[in-house]
Each structure stands twice: as structure tokens, then as C-alpha cells.
Design a binder for these strands. Structure first.
Length: 614
RNA sequence: GGACCCGUAGUGUAGUGGCCUAACACGCCAGCCUGUCACGCUGGAGAUCGCCGGUUCGAAUCCGGUCGGGUCCGCCA
């Protein structure tokens, strides 16, 4: 570090090479050890800790000031870097061979006793207190290291894109509200009373317009805002790596993202083993059928098996009726869990119910060819053994079987698969495993509104070979039914997952007004509504839009995964609570009457507290 | 919108109907100490048990409500 007028060295710089040199250091007092005539201070900054010795024999003035010093005071100390006395080295400190022998101390700022211990990184503190005093929490090592890792990640992202010819472009935060997707945060306009801006849920439309402009490789570290309920992996404002490329198909985008992800991972966590290079690619169908998830964790096995053929002849009525209704019977084998206690199996059944299944069938194999389980009496031992074998089970294994609608059955089992792997530690947690899932269905049937809705992004293009499916049986897009060919159309959509977490998703977009318009019509937007909501992009597409596609990756989730955190609050400097509050700034806060008046707004009086959904 | 969990000195915990005049550790304050590094030793201060109401002879403890925090479902690219 370059010296400043306050300091010559950081608290990590004091090393044997500096011995004998006069130096001034500045930082926070981590600890004080007062031995009477001799006082030790551990001086801390974000780089490290250096021990300061104040000997009354050297400087009575400095000693007198050192007696006043308290933990977390900000001080500046001048003296000489000296080698420690033989046998007094501290191998727990990088600077433990030396110390600063002080001749002068200046207290730059006093400090109240902090609400929680700063100098013990292992100290557990209630999160609401950490959030209220976030600036103190950020003084502590663990959070500070994660914020630094995040900075390294963003730099690695910028370096990779810059080297590959991408242009970083900032897009506006005040944009137009659209009803698609999540609920918008809305900002009232003062200059145009009664009208509002929306804060962007993502720079989606802007980046597509940039493609029309010819910025064929764009990226941005973009803040995105969504007014939805929070979760451990969801904050109302979060950061995405947003990128878009022209003259590409899905394989081109995936190839770039893969290369970039590897570079970023190696820059941030060179120590963690990577399971897959190149990243495996699963169609949505394959991911669901093999792992019961569209973001599979492939660090462990326990893949799902289709048991439909056997189940049809099993004599178990539940299986047969599910299959008759077009459902699926799927199973998985959990290695070595044949001896699982009945109580734990009941817990799994409860979990399966919560995940949406009506029940869970289990079979447990012992080591001597015996089998027990919920349906052994009904189907007989031989059929039970055949089902277990078909699920891939051997002696000592546990088989779980779910019969339900297609996709639901697999997803329930997928939930149990993750739970079993976590609970029984079936994999190495340090391993990183990126996977692609692609060829998602274009649309899903929206029961409530009896119409097709985009599974992901409404701008995603259809796979070329499925183009003919963008239609309804009636021929009229306004008269849709769940049996329409549109339900079978697959999108040029790809999601990237890391260790079972959704990291990002993107697609090749429609780049002609005709195709985009056709897709919007299928989703029940009449021409007038399209013009109203998407006039900008629809018009732009009439002026020569290149084929293009892109992706957005959740930066918060990504760095959380790379730093072993299960909550993105742990990688954000100033996050919000699950009710959307900022405990440090006490936001949101009531609005002043004159602010409202200026905006031409009135608050609706609320009677009671049960109107909050209005 | 719903379900569940948590709330006791500054911090982390113990106490789950009377043994509580609320305990322990760290921190804090004062004194002593020249080689400590989680310094040590001696002494001290600090809590109306989140808030409101109820049950009870008696409530930190049981019940209802409320506020705050967390996890999940709904919602959400």
C-alpha cells in the first residue's frame, strides 16, 4: 500500500524486512493488554494486526495516552519496527515476528463499547443486531472477507468480458412499468402527476434494444429490483451479471458463459475442486426425469428411475390408477439407508406430502435378502424385490417411490433426494458443480386465467424445430386450451445451476416483430395491449434487429455459493430483513405530507390491519 | 396472505408455575502488575425476563393479542 499522510504501513506490512525502520501505523485497537508499566495494543485494519508495545521507560507521554485507549478506538502510533524478543514471537499473526515499539500515540477517535464483540470472529450475534449495526459487523473479519471476495468476483467478471470484447453499458433505473413477471417497485413522477416510473426487474428490454443498436456484446453488473416477498436467496434489490450477444445461438451463449464462469471461479476460489468441465447439459425433460429438478445437484447419485412398466403390473391399485390417469411412478435408491428408523421414514413421508405428493411408498432391503416396506404385503415379496431392483437398489439400500402426475412425482422425489444427500452427508461440500438445463417448455398453462403464460422470459424464442407448435387447436389464439400444441413447444432457454441452486437463466430471443407478436398473442395479449406495453421494443424490431440471445446470473447467489453461505444477506454489505426493512437506516419510513402533496398523491386511510393486500 | 420457530444485563446462554431477592461466561468499570498476545489477579456496576392484557394465592415460566427477527409455502427471473 502507498503511504498516506496518516500512515506508512498497513497493519499487515510490518514484517522482518522492516525491522529497524521508523514507521507510523493507524488503525483500530483490537485489544489492549495492560501490564502496568508495559502496555500492548493489537492494532487492526482490514489487512491485518500488528502488535504495538508502549513502554513507560521509552515514553511516559505515550504510556499515559495508551492507558486511556479502549477497544475500537482509532489511533495513530509512531515508533520503530523491532524484532520481538527471542521466544516472544506469535505464530498466529502474520506479523508475529515483529512489533511496533511506540514513541508517540494519538487517539484519532474514541469509541463507545460496541454492542457486540468485534475482535472475536467466532462470536455469534443475533442477526437483527448485526443488521442494525451493520457498519460494525462489516468491521469483523468473516463478513469483510466475503465482501472482498465479492469485489474480486466482480473484477474477474469485468476482466473476462473486457478481454472478450464486451462493452459495459449502464441502463436506467427509472423505466416503464410492465405487468409481466414480478411486482414492480413504483416511483411517482413529480413532473407528471399521476404517472409513475418502475424500477427495473432486470435490464431485459434495454439490452435487447442495445442489440438493435449494434452493441453485439453487452454486459452490465446490474442492480435489479422486485417488490416480492423475501427469502434466504431473495432480496428486494439484488445484483445480476446481465449480458447479451448478437449473431449467436444458444450454444454460443452457453460456451461463453461456461468459459467466463470457469475464469471467475478460478479467480475467486482456486482452492475448490470443480466436478464438471465442460458443464453437463440436460434437457429440462432429462433433468426432471433423472434428478427431479430443473436445477440438479449432480455431486451425488441417487438418480430417479421410471418404474411405470413394473408398477402397472404390481397389483397395487394406487400405482395403477395414477398410471391410468397419465401419471408417473418413479423411484430412487438411497444407498446404505435400508436400516433407516421408522421415525425417519415417517419424516420423509411428511416431507413428500409438503412437497405436493399424496403419499410415499418405501421399501427397505436388509443384507440377507429380506425386504420390508409399506406395500410388501399388498404386492408380495417377489414384486417388491423386482421394484427395488428396478429402482437400482441392492442389499442394505432404501427405495422411495412416488406415484403422481408427471413432473410432480419426479419433483417430490427430487426434494427427497436433496434432503437425503444433505442429511446423510453423501457428498463433498467443497466441490463445485455447474450444470446447464435447457429446452424448457415455452409456456405453462395458467389455470386461473385459462391462458398460456411464458415459463421464463416472454421474449424467449422457440426452438426452430418447434416453431410450428406456436398455435392453438382452435386456430384462434384468444381461445386457448391446455391441450394446445403450444404446450409442447420448447424454448431456446437455458438455465445454469451451481450445486443445486439456480444461478441464472437466459435465452435466444425472438428478433422479429412477427414472431414476438405471435408469441404474445398466444399468451392472451391482444394487439392493442402489445402496443401499449411493449411499443418500444416492438417498434425497434422493425428497424433491423439481429438474432441475439443472452443470460443473467445472480451475483449474490454466486458469491454466496463460492463462500459457503446459504443466505445472500451474508454477501451483501447492507441487506434488508425478511420484512424488507433496513434496520440500520430504519427504512422504509413514513412519508411526509408535503412530499405527498408535491407528487399529487393521497394515502388511502386503512381500517384495521387486514387490508395490506389491497 | 398462510404455517412454524425465536425474543431473559452490552453480547451469548441457563432457568419452562413457588426453591428467582433471576444464574453463568464474555464484555464493561476501578485497582494492582515490565513481555503479554483469548494476559493475569482482586473488587464492582449492570435485567422491571420484547410490549399489552388475561389465568392464578403466586407468572421469566401458562393463555390471548401485539411488535421485532428467522425459516418455509404462496408469490417471485
Amino acid at each position: 500500500m502507498r503511504p498516506t499522510s496518516y500512515r506508512d504501513l498497513t497493519c499487515a506490512d510490518a514484517r522482518l524486512e522492516e525491522v529497524g525502520k521508523p514507521a507510523t501505523l493507524a488503525g483500530w485497537v483490537n485489544r489492549r493488554r495492560d501490564l502496568g508499566q508495559l502496555i500492548f495494543l493489537d492494532l487492526r485494519d482490514r489487512y491485518g494486526i500488528t502488535q504495538v508495545v508502549i513502554d513507560n521507560a521509552d515514553s511516559p507521554e505515550a504510556h499515559a495516552i495508551a492507558e486511556q485507549v479502549r477497544p475500537e478506538c482509532v489511533v495513530r502510533v509512531s515508533g520503530t519496527i523491532t524484532k520481538r524478543l527471542a521466544g516472544m514471537e506469535n505464530d498466529k499473526l502474520d506479523t508475529g515476528d515483529v512489533e511496533l515499539r511506540a514513541t508517540e500515540i494519538e487517539i484519532l477517535a474514541t469509541a463507545k463499547t460496541p454492542p457486540f464483540v468485534i475482535n472475536d470472529p467466532a462470536a455469534e450475534v443475533d442477526e437483527s443486531i448485526r443488521l442494525k449495526y451493520r457498519y460494525l459487523d462489516l468491521r469483523r473479519g468473516p463478513l469483510q472477507r466475503r465482501i472482498v471476495a465479492r469485489s474480486r468476483m466482480v473484477k474477474a467478471i469485468r476482466d473476462a468480458h473486457d478481454a472478450a470484447g464486451f462493452v459495459e453499458i449502464e441502463t436506467p433505473l427509472l423505466i416503464k412499468s410492465t405487468p409481466e413477471g414480478a411486482r414492480d417497485f413504483v416511483v411517482p413522477s413529480r413532473l407528471q402527476p399521476g404517472s409513475v416510473y418502475a424500477l427495473p426487474q432486470s435490464p431485459q428490454q434495454m439490452k435487447q434494444l442495445l442489440m438493435v443498436s449494434g452493441f453485439d456484446r453487452y454486459y452490465q453488473i446490474a442492480r435489479c429490483l422486485r417488490d416480492e416477498d423475501l427469502r434466504g436467496d431473495r432480496q428486494p434489490e439484488f445484483t445480476q451479471l446481465d449480458l447479451e450477444m448478437s449473431f449467436v445461438d444458444d450454444t454460443d451463449v452457453m460456451a461463453w458463459v461456461e468459459e467466463m464462469c470457469l475464469a471467475v471461479t478460478k479467480a475467486v476460489r482456486p482452492d475448490r475442486p470443480l466436478l464438471n468441465d465442460p458443464f453437463p447439459r440436460f434437457s429440462f425433460r432429462e433433468a426432471i426425469d433423472r434428478f427431479g429438478s430443473d436445477k440438479p445437484d449432480v455431486r451425488y447419485g441417487m438418480e430417479l428411475r421410471d418404474l411405470g412398466d413394473l408398477a402397472a403390473a404390481s397389483g397395487f391399485r394406487v400405482f395403477e390408477s395414477v398410471l391410468d390417469a397419465g401419471g408417473r411412478v418413479v423411484g430412487l435408491a438411497a444407498p446404505g439407508l435400508g436400516g433407516l428408523a421408522r421415525k425417519q421414514i415417517d419424516e420423509l413421508t411428511e416431507l413428500a406430502r409438503k412437497a405436493g405428493a399424496s403419499g410415499l411408498v418405501w421399501l427397505a432391503l436388509d443384507g440377507e435378502g429380506g425386504i420390508r416396506g409399506s406395500i410388501v404385503k399388498v404386492v408380495g415379496e417377489e414384486m417388491a424385490h423386482r421394484l427395488a431392483a428396478a429402482a437400482g437398489a441392492g442389499p442394505g439400500d432404501l427405495v422411495l417411490i412416488v406415484a403422481d402426475r408427471d413432473i410432480t412425482a419426479q419433483e417430490v422425489l427430487g426434494t427427497l433426494r436433496v434432503e437425503l444427500a444433505d442429511r446423510h452427508e453423501m457428498y463433498d461440500r467443497s466441490v463445485l458443480s455447474y450444470v446447464w438445463v435447457y429446452q424448457f417448455p415455452m409456456y405453462h398453462w395458467d389455470e386461473d386465467n385459462a391462458r398460456w403464460d411464458a415459463t421464463h422470459n416472454p421474449f424467449s424464442a422457440v426452438l426452430p424445430e418447434d416453431e410450428a407448435l406456436l398455435t392453438t387447436n382452435s386456430g384462434d389464439p384468444a381461445v386457448a386450451s391446455p391441450e394446445d400444441p403450444a404446450g409442447r413447444a420448447r424454448a431456446q432457454q437455458y438455465d445454469i445451476a451451481l450445486n443445486g441452486w439456480e444461478l441464472g437463466g437466459g435465452s435466444v430471443r425472438f428478433h422479429t416483430r412477427e414472431m414476438l407478436s405471435k408469441s404474445f398473442s398466444l399468451m392472451g395479449h391482444d394487439l392493442e395491449a402489445q402496443e401499449e406495453q411493449f411499443s418500444g421494443i416492438l417498434e425497434a424490431f422493425e428497424y433491423g434487429a439481429p438474432p441475439h440471445g443472452g443470460i443473467a446470473l445472480g451475483v449474490d447467489r454466486w458469491i454466496a455459493l463460492l463462500t459457503d453461505q446459504s443466505n445472500i444477506r451474508e454477501v451483501m454489505a447492507f441487506p434488508k430483513t425478511s420484512s424488507g426493512s433496513d434496520l440500520m437506516l430504519d427504512a422504509p419510513s413514513p412519508v411526509h405530507a408535503d412530499q405527498l402533496a408535491e407528487l399529487g398523491l393521497m394515502l388511502q386511510p386503512r381500517i384495521g390491519r387486514d387490508r395490506s393486500s389491497d
